[in-house]
């Protein structure tokens, strides 16, 4: 028997809701993985035609180029407000934002807290890579104590520059938040868990159970000055202790639905 006698079976392919094109992301960056996971979930749930995405300002500013769904582009930090406007007009549609940490946890903190507290039935994909990627690696609200960035060249000094924000923990205190979890994209096991969480977050929205957010610890090899492999190790060694993975808010309605 030769190899060609084995019937070919497709075991892995590009999700339909992901455009067939290269991305502008740096080698080793996990944005691409996050995009793919979202696209797989949209495909699997059969909600591509009902979905409207809201891109934000940061490295994912061009996210709309990569998804085969209707998209709008928000001002810096304002994606949850824009998503609110769309969702209130189209309550039966699926509306999600895709935001980085500078966008969501710094300039957009007001909008994300407002949306979560109102229990807006939107899904937020939140990329935490501990720096401002697009502008070249400045200190972000998520930059770790001691972490060197282009605007904290001697390392983040908490006495002068304050402490990083633990977004999932913070938003979990809001009654309006239904599903708030933190996952990571630094190894295969965590990628699979991240996918499950993204699926749950969209299901929570589809079931009308409230606000859902998945924080994803991500790598930024370019701005961290590391190889992709080193960057993944850095997530494990440095980010995980400060940003523990876990489920921070599962509302009783979501818990009931999960049964």
């Amino acid at each position: 028997m030769t190899l060609t006698d084995v019937p070919a079976k497709v075991v892995y392919s590009r999700p339909d809701s992901l455009e067939c094109r290269g991305t502008h992301y740096c080698p080793g960056c996990t944005h691409g993985i996050a995009h793919r996971l979202v696209a797989e979930v949209l495909d699997e749930m059969g909600i591509v035609e009902d979905t409207i995405g809201v891109a934000s300002v940061g490295c994912s500013v061009f996210a709309y180029n990569y998804f085969n769904v209707d998209f709008v582009e928000a001002a810096h930090g304002r994606a949850p407000a824009m998503a609110t406007g769309i969702k209130r007009v189209y309550p039966d549609h699926i509306v999600f934002t895709y935001q980085g940490d500078g966008d969501l946890a710094s300039i957009g903190m007001g909008e994300i807290v407002g949306a979560a507290s109102r229990g807006e039935k939107i899904t937020v994909i939140f990329i935490n890579n501990a720096n401002y990627g697009m502008t070249g690696g400045q200190m972000a609200p998520t930059t770790l104590p001691g972490q060197k960035t282009t605007s904290s060249p001697t390392g983040r000094d908490v006495a002068r520059q304050g402490y990083p924000i633990q977004t999932a923990e913070l938003l979990s205190t809001l009654e309006g938040a239904a599903y708030v979890v933190r996952r990571s994209l630094h190894n295969n096991r965590e990628v699979r868990r991240a996918k499950q969480a993204i699926r749950t977050a969209f299901e929570v929205q589809k079931a009308g159970l409230g606000f859902s957010l998945v924080e994803l610890l991500s790598t930024c090899p370019t701005n961290w000055g590391m190889t992709p492999v080193e960057a993944r190790e850095w997530v494990e060694e440095r980010m995980l202790p400060f940003y523990p993975l876990g489920d921070y808010k599962i509302s009783s309605a979501v818990a009931e639905w999960m049964k």
Partner: peptide, 26 residues
């Protein structure tokens, strides 16, 4: 019909922005 008292005027105008993208009267 949709009504939201926003968290700020920043929130309000960006909700309008989102809703305006649907082509409805906002």
């Amino acid at each position: 019909r949709a009504f939201v008292q926003a968290e700020s005027e920043l929130g309000a105008i960006n909700m309008v922005y989102g809703a305006a993208c649907t082509g409805k009267r906002v």
